[in-house]
């Protein structure tokens, strides 16, 4: 590898030299890295797979260095390997490693890179070697930051995904009759949950060809204006699709709160119990039905 004398001491060119050196020693460094726990324990199918993964990271590092952005965690060169790094850190995290420990494993990659770079720059003046090593150190530090960042956001992503799954599990849509579906809501209704409830109920209306949909709030501890708003949105969306939505399980205490808060459930059909709501729906469908003690009045 040739280095022009004039460029000595120039930080930009040091980075460029590191980039070239990394490409030049790509095979050797990759072979060394493939045996480190960070790669070996993640890419377990074959050693070749680990070596390939190492090469991908090396190529990214070389690109970042050549672009003169050794200190920039957002250098475009990193984008290609971000997903791979995220997968690696996630896989290490699953074995119980903390983000700091994972970062430590990334830092450990530096020594073999330094060795090969020193060998690469053997013939060069001390100033060139010094500049190159400094650039390499910064570059490896940046890589560590990138991995740290993906490890942390990966955790956040996982929590989000689990929350989403929990939401879906917590809102089953039940078919009560031909053309009648119901969702028993249990627990606090927040925006995310309401969104899932609305979507699953509307999907069920289509799937079951349901003309009536019942939202049972027996298990909802309190109804504030936000919950009321969510209920009304769901009712309005069901109506647009051509189904009628009934809110049941309005306990006396909740009815009282709704009145006291001055909430307007404008035109929403409400019933005291799920049974009353079903009776209302069946009457609407013209299903033969004996008299009950608890028939409500249609509040349109």
């Amino acid at each position: 590898m040739r280095v022009s004398e004039q460029q000595i001491g120039d930080e930009w060119s040091s980075a460029g030299q590191v980039g070239q050196a990394l490409r030049h020693r790509r095979e050797q460094i990759a072979q060394r890295w493939a045996d480190t726990p960070l790669f070996r324990t993640v890419f377990t199918v074959s050693r070749d797979e680990a070596v390939e993964a190492c090469k991908a990271v090396l190529d990214a590092l070389a690109e970042v260095a050549e672009a003169g952005r050794v200190e920039d965690v957002d250098a475009p060169g990193f984008f290609v390997v971000r997903e791979q790094l995220a997968r690696m850190s996630a896989s290490r995290a699953r074995t119980g490693l903390s983000p700091a420990q994972i970062a430590g494993e990334v830092a450990a990659l530096r020594s073999s890179a330094v060795e090969h770079l020193t060998a690469e720059f053997e013939q060069e003046p001390a100033a060139v070697v010094h500049g190159a090593l400094l650039a390499l150190t910064m570059l490896m530090g940046t890589l560590r930051l990138v991995v740290m960042e993906t490890a942390l956001s990966d955790g956040a992503e996982l929590i989000n995904r689990q929350r989403q799954q929990l939401l879906e599990v917590a809102t089953p849509v039940i078919k009560l009759w031909d053309g009648v579906v119901a969702v028993p809501l249990i627990g606090t209704l927040d925006s995310a949950r309401s969104q899932v409830v609305m979507e699953s109920l509307l999907e069920a209306i289509v799937a079951q060809q349901a003309q009536y949909a019942i939202l049972d709030i027996t298990g909802v501890p309190t109804v504030d204006s936000l919950v009321a708003q969510h209920l009304m949105k769901t009712v309005a969306a069901a109506r647009l699709m051509g189904a009628e939505c009934v809110v049941s399980g309005v306990r006396p205490a909740i009815a009282q709160t709704i009145v006291q808060l001055g909430l307007d459930l404008g035109g929403v059909v409400t019933r005291a119990t799920l049974a009353d709501a079903l009776a209302f729906a069946l009457r609407g469908l013209g299903v033969g039905f004996g008299p009950t003690s608890h028939q409500g009045v249609v509040a349109r």
Binding site: E199, L202, A236, L240, G242
Partner: peptide, 11 residues
């Protein structure tokens, strides 16, 4: 036949 996604969006 309004789709659920359309109904949600309109609301």
């Amino acid at each position: 036949g309004m789709r659920p996604t359309v109904a949600i969006t309109l609301v």
